[in-house]
Write a protein that binds this DNA or RNA. Structure first.
Lengths: 252, 252
DNA sequence: ATGTTCAAATTATTATATCATTATATGAAA
DNA sequence: TTTCATATAATGATATAATAATTTGAACAT
């Protein structure tokens, strides 16, 4: 048994088996991160180093590192000069964890779409307020790209999705961006490649209008348009009739 | 080296070291979950069983289980009849992962508050639409509890926070609830125990008004009130002057 | 000097064996 | 029926060793 200098001030996490040595190490690193002792890129050390530091076996360190890695706190590299380092933010783990939780909790498509409305509505609103010139240029490029592939459903859907992402990115809010990415990953299977010609034209029209609002910094209009846009997508998702689809309400 | 019957159809996750045997096991379990082969509560087996099934060592299985556990996919119990089971949804893991990502990405308090507006605004809106009789009763109870401890800042803050949570819960949207819990965990350190008497009275008034809107199913009013409510909290958070605080703009 | 190749050092990955700890299940006694 | 002791089964942890992957750096050729 090793001396891991644990603080028992832990809270709100994993009630069971929280006092295992491996978890104590996880907690220490986690708290060191939150207390500002670590920054992305900082080296924690190799398994051997850490085993010596904590006075535990390498296996125990490994358990802790595996957990920290999955939490996105550290990155591990093999080879000389390798070892465990504090990670840069990596949203992939997070998105995946989100998808898993939604799956396990049995969250419905309806609930996810409501969530999407919350995120993208606010995203559009803040985009109108905070957009930079670079944001406008990127949005313009994406609009033109979508225009050029308007006859190719798959390509248009892809360009449309990137337009939505670019809108949220223009908000400058990384929390929103993270959520949007995560949600898109969850929603993605449902609404891929459904855009026929007339549908695409309608979507493109709405996107152009949205761009105009964002450029004019009309945040309320941008929000409202985005919400209506998503609401119509939802309507189609739930009725699912060919008529609705033909009405051009869906985009990407 | 074991035969793990891996499918190489993996995507969108952990680009580095994704082909380790341990990760292949993780992938298999994850995909089995998403393909509906597993349900919460299902037994995966003990470490020994799994080591035999996959024809790998116990250490490798352990690595995989540690990852799956951190992702919230499985729960592990010690002792006879224990082993690894598919988890019920556990949002604590997710909340923690979110907090970590925000920390690593350097997300500011401002960004988190904007996010909170998105979540709680939509939460209030949907609460007005979907609230059940039970929701109304719980909200009423919380209002009365807050009233009874209005002179105790810490208790009132606590009751107020639970009121906010109950509002989001009344939306019936588990995705929103998960986000709210996660955000609350991130924000929590900042705005605890600041409610003086006059501030508490103002907050209580707003909460009662919010309840009225939710009861009357006036979703737009509920959303607007919630957003204003949070906006004033934000204003205080950023100015931070004693005057603003005394203006009674902050609640919990 | 500069770029390339190759060997050595470093590190994680996997494996096997063993003991300790913990939780469940079983069964006997009250 | 409850309670308590015991057996059993599982993870937790340690030790040791072989293997694979990666980087470093030196030797080499250009």
């Amino acid at each position: 048994m090793g001396n891991t200098e644990l603080k028992k001030t832990n809270q709100s996490w994993s009630p069971v088996r929280a006092n295992s040595v491996a978890n104590q190490i996880v907690m220490q690193v986690r708290e060191a991160l939150f207390s500002g002792k670590f920054q992305p890129g900082d080296l924690l050390g190799s398994e051997k180093d850490l085993a010596a530091q904590f006075d535990v076996s390498r296996i125990t360190v490994r358990d802790a590192l595996r957990t920290l890695e999955t939490m996105g706190i550290i990155e591990i590299r093999v080879g000389a000069g390798g070892g465990a380092r504090i990670a840069e933010g990596n949203l992939d783990y997070f998105s995946d964890a989100l998808a898993v939780q939604f799956k396990l909790a049995g969250v419905t498509e309806r609930e996810i779409l409501d969530m999407q409305v919350a995120i993208e509505g606010t995203g559009a609103e803040l985009a109108a307020l905070n957009r930079s010139r670079e944001n406008l240029e990127e949005l313009t490029e994406l609009l033109e790209e979508a225009e050029s592939v308007i006859d190719s459903p798959a390509d248009f859907t892809d360009a449309g999705q990137r337009f939505h992402l670019a809108v949220v990115e223009a908000s400058g809010n990384r929390a929103l961006i993270a959520q949007f990415r995560a949600l898109r990953y969850v929603v993605w299977p449902q609404n891929a490649q459904r855009a026929k010609r007339e549908i695409a034209e309608n979507a493109q029209k709405i996107h152009r209008q949205l761009f105009a609002f964002i450029e004019a910094q009309d945040s309320e209009a941008a929000r409202k348009l985005m919400i209506d846009h998503l609401a119509s997508i939802r309507a189609v998702s739930f009725s699912g009739t060919a008529e609705d689809t033909a009405n051009g309400l869906i985009c990407c």
